[in-house]
Amino acid sequence: MLIIKNLHAGIEGKQILKGLNLTVNAGEVHAIMGPNGAGKSSLASVLAGRENYEVTEGEVSFQGKDLLDMNPETRAREGLFLAFQYPIEIPGVSNINFLKTALGEIRAYKNLPPLDAKEFLALSREKQKLVEFDAKLVNRSLNEGFSGGEKKRNEIFQLAMLEPSLSILDETDSGLDIDALRIVSKGVNKLRSEKNAFIIITHYQRLLEYIVPDFVHVLANGRIVKSGTKELALELEEKGYDWLKEEKEQEATII
């Protein structure tokens, strides 16, 4: 589904990703962990197409197409979804109107007829229930006045509504209390299928107790320095990230 080869990218002339490789197949959940400043959120931003990031080298193919060639909305319509670390507030734009517009655009892109008001409402109700999202929040302005937890849950609700093939959860667990974390994870687990894939970016192992990943990667200094299964996450929890740095430095001297 997603093949990242030798990706180099930076912001304002500062290199952040320095030759990153990653392959994600349908049905898989990948966790990307790493110390602060390793480039985790930058990876999410580059994949979603944030303008201020500049890709200097490498390629990314998404469902066989060149992802880097697409503008952000085309990436979204192709099925790439980013659950933002800091979801923005847009005053006056109702959550529901926004979702209707977004879903309409995505369906039009896929040559599907638009849902009528009734169908849309039914879908919205079904997904609200699925991810336990408060109906009151659906009719409020987009993220305006939402608590941190409500914003993150809104991201998952949108994920459920738009049914993307690849979802990137950028530190969705940050700022969540344990109950909210459980609700968010439950939602994600219900949405997991053979057809879609998830990339979960997180600093802590905590989230991975709820969303069990197939693969765990460690991102440090702009590259994936170690990959493994969910046991790697536990190891990281125990030892921290410092031992990896040492390992990497050794590697560097060898090269």
Binding site: P72, E73, R75, A76, I90, P91, L99, E105, S141, L162
Partner: peptide
């Protein structure tokens, strides 16, 4: 960018934001 990421093009995004702003 947030609206772009949800599949809405920039032109429509501007219209949405403006209407919200003027609501």
């Amino acid at each position: 960018f947030y609206l772009n990421q949800r599949g809405i093009d920039s032109e429509k995004a501007v219209a949405l934001i403006i209407n919200g702003y003027a609501k």
